[in-house]
Structures are given as structure tokens and as C-alpha cells.
Amino acid sequence: MTHLIETRELCFSYDDEENESTENKLEGKYALCGVNITIDKGEFVAVVGRNGSGKSTFAKLLNLVLEASSGEVYIDGKKVSPEMTDEELLDLRRRVGMVFQNPDNQLVATIVEEDVAFGPENLGIPSAEIRERVDAALELVGMTEYARHEPHRLSGGQKQRVAIAGIIAMMPECMIFDESTAMLDPSGRAEVVDVMEKLVREKGITVINITHLMSEAARADRIIVINEGKVIGEGTPKEIFTNTELVRRAGLELPQCAALLGELRARGVRIDGAGITPDECADIIIKKLQNREEE
């Protein structure tokens, strides 16, 4: 079976001249180095890592905003390379949509629905179909009533949802969110993550969420941990967050609930199982308390 996204020994360096000699890899001149990742259709993946670890670089390599220095990227079994024809490139960018951090810097038009239509218009979709897609996309992100509004009067979360609708209208197979919640307040963040989940569960779109928030990463099916341009860990949220060594090495912070369980454990309370969400942790603690009462 072909994976939706597959990278083989992917390397990237921001300064071109110096990437010939292989020693540079060791000197850390590479923003990304030897990355092997596979992501399947319909997966919800979170990518975490400290500032400057290469997460954004990784995302930009997937839709050829940046060109790999060495190694390969395959999207749906098709090699991504600068030799692609213009049509192939457009198709690649359509398939792999990207939402960025600052919602202000990705909205192009002065009216919400015009902005959502921007992508499909670029693809040369017939007018009537664009209309349908725009309405459907706005409906999906819950912004139908703002269709005729001006983007600069919306809240951050609303703007970001408009940006998401703009990508959805291109009918992508995969959406990458590069710290798209970083500039939002908790309610805006919740709005956007809810949309992500909806995309995965209802539309079967693969979502890659690059984030610094562990509570957000915990909602994904799988977490990929990047540090200094290398993948240093991969697994379900439970696997990642119970691996304290890995979490420490990547400079991450545990989700508060997982941290609480860890602390209890450290103080000698015997806790079996791992919990990431507040719900799971509550269950584990209640069970423990009940056991104690019985004793």
C-alpha cells in the first residue's frame, strides 16, 4: 500500500553552498537531516519539538515551498521534485494544503467568501462549482453567517477558520497546520482544534498539526517528536508522554494531567496505566482512591 506521505532520508539546509561536504551534517548546518516518516490517509498526526527544531522546514518541504537538499518526498507514491511540471506542482499544492501561524498574513481578499474562493479560482474551477465549494467550506468551519464580512473585523479564531475554509475549498487530501493556534486565545484555539478533528473524523482528510501545546498534541492519533532536525521519537500520545526521557530530551512539557500522574508516581504512589486527557487521569485517580478505601 502506498502511504499518503513518505519521506526518505530527507535533508535540508538553508545555506546552499555548504551542503556538498557531508561533514556539515555533523556540524548541525542542516535544518533537517535524515528524516524518514510515513503518514497514511486519514491520520491525525501532531509534530512537536522545540523552537528551531525544523518543524516548519519539514512542512514546507512537503509541498515544495522549499526544495530538499537531498533525500526524497513522496506524496501518494509520486515523487516531489523541482522537475515537476506546473500542473503537477499545482496538483501537489492542492493536495497538501497549509495553514500558517498568523491569520492576518494569509488572507488575501477584503471579503470572507472572496478569500475562501481564492484557491479554487487559482485552480481554474468553474464559477458555479466554486460557489458550492465556498458555501460548503464556510459551513464546515461554522462561518457561514460571516460570508460577507471583512476579515479584519473578525476575531483571531474566526480569521483562522476562514483561512482553513480557504484550504478546504481546494479539496485537499492533507492539511498541515503550522502552529496555527499559537496566536489565539484558549477559545480561539479550541475552535480551530475542533475544526481539525472534524476534518479528520468526518471528511477523512489527513491532518498534520505542528504545535507547541502538548494538550493539543495529545488529541492526535500519533505524535512525531523532532529535535535538532532529526526525528527522535514517534508513537501514540500515551507512548510519547510516558517516555519521560524522550520528553525531556526534546525540551517538551508534559500535558498537565500526565505531569500530575508522573508526580504522584515519583512520590511513591503506585499508578498503573497512563493517562493524557483530564478524563483518563480522573479515572485512574478515582480507581486508585477506591482501591485504597477497600484496603
Binding site: 514546507k60 509541498n63 515551498v65 506546473d86 499545482l90 499544492r93 492542492r94 494544503g97 497549509m98 500558517f100 498574513n105 494569509q106 488575501v108 467568501e113 472572496e114 474562493a117 481564492f118 484557491g119 479554487p120 479560482e121 487559482n122 485552480l123 481554474g124 474551477i125 468553474p126 464559477s127 466554486i130 460557489r131 465556498v134 480557504g166 484550504i167 481546494m170
Partner: peptide, 17 residues
């Protein structure tokens, strides 16, 4: 970058909603 990611490639072959 955002426009490129949204397949902007000039006016050629562009339609309007």
C-alpha cells in the same frame, strides 16, 4: 508563501467565483 500554497500562479487560467 501562503498565496503560493494556495496555488496562486498569476492570472493565467484563473476563474472567478
Amino acid at each position: 508563501t501562503a498565496m503560493e500554497c494556495r496555488c496562486y500562479h498569476g492570472g493565467e487560467g484563473r476563474t472567478k467565483m
